[in-house]
């Protein structure tokens, strides 16, 4: 029953998008099939500009973060940073959620160990929110989402870390960051432009905790 309900609300919201087209393939047995899997989206090269200092080529701290909305699957202008239009913001190795000290939304985050595909339900409690000096997605090598190699100076997103996100509007999503370098090179050398986030995510627009 739950599944059916979820599906109907999905249809209602996104009747014309992917959910519908997925449905149309198997409308013969839509009474018994569980809800269609949500689509895994990939966002590439989310980065604030400029992310490198023009003189030295070294990464330098850009003035603004780069903002992203799961609902619109697109970047949001930094001028909208004080709104609930964005869910996630990145600059350097820092990741903000739209809540607490970072924004006016209901955002929160949990860094969970596991496989992206194995996380099928979002928890409803224990979300951390950003505070000054203590981000919900903890800063530092090995503490949050990445490891920094002191020999090669390469920042690698830790495999098996899923960011469970409560969005600005209180909906749920799961995110896996897969690259920190421009165009997600297979084997980064540390000299590529950095701070370019490539991440996979599943966003549940209906407000339920289902992330399957």
């Amino acid at each position: 029953m739950n599944h059916l309900f979820a599906r109907f609300s999905l249809l209602a919201l996104f009747g014309a998008t992917f959910t519908f087209s997925a449905c149309s393939n198997d409308d013969n047995d839509n009474e018994v099939k569980p809800a269609e899997a949500l689509k895994t989206e990939t966002a590439s090269n989310l980065a604030p500009t400029p992310s490198t200092a023009p003189t030295t080529g070294q990464p330098s701290t850009p003035r603004h973060y780069a903002f992203y909305s799961f609902a619109t699957k697109s970047a949001v202008a930094y001028t909208d940073s004080a709104t609930t239009k964005w869910d996630l913001a990145v600059r350097g190795t820092d990741i903000l959620i739209n809540g607490g000290s970072s924004g006016p939304g209901q955002g929160g985050a949990i860094v969970k160990e596991g496989l992206f595909s194995e996380v099928t339900t979002a928890p409803t409690t224990d979300y951390k929110v950003d505070a000054p000096g203590a981000l919900a997605i903890t800063k530092g090598s090995g503490k949050g989402w990445y490891n920094y190699n002191t020999t090669t100076h390469v920042v690698t997103p830790i495999a098996g870390r899923v960011l469970l996100i409560r969005t600005a509007t209180g909906k749920y999503a799961k995110v896996e960051i897969v690259s920190y370098y421009k165009d997600a090179p297979a084997t980064p050398t540390g000299t590529e432009p950095s701070g370019y986030y490539t991440f996979r995510y599943v966003y549940q627009p209906d407000g339920s905790t289902n992330l399957k």
Binding site: Y146, N147, T151, T152, V154, T156, P157, T187
Partner: peptide, 8 residues
């Protein structure tokens, strides 16, 4: 020699 894929 050393870790390269971040899992240490």
């Amino acid at each position: 020699f050393q870790d390269r894929n971040g899992n240490l």
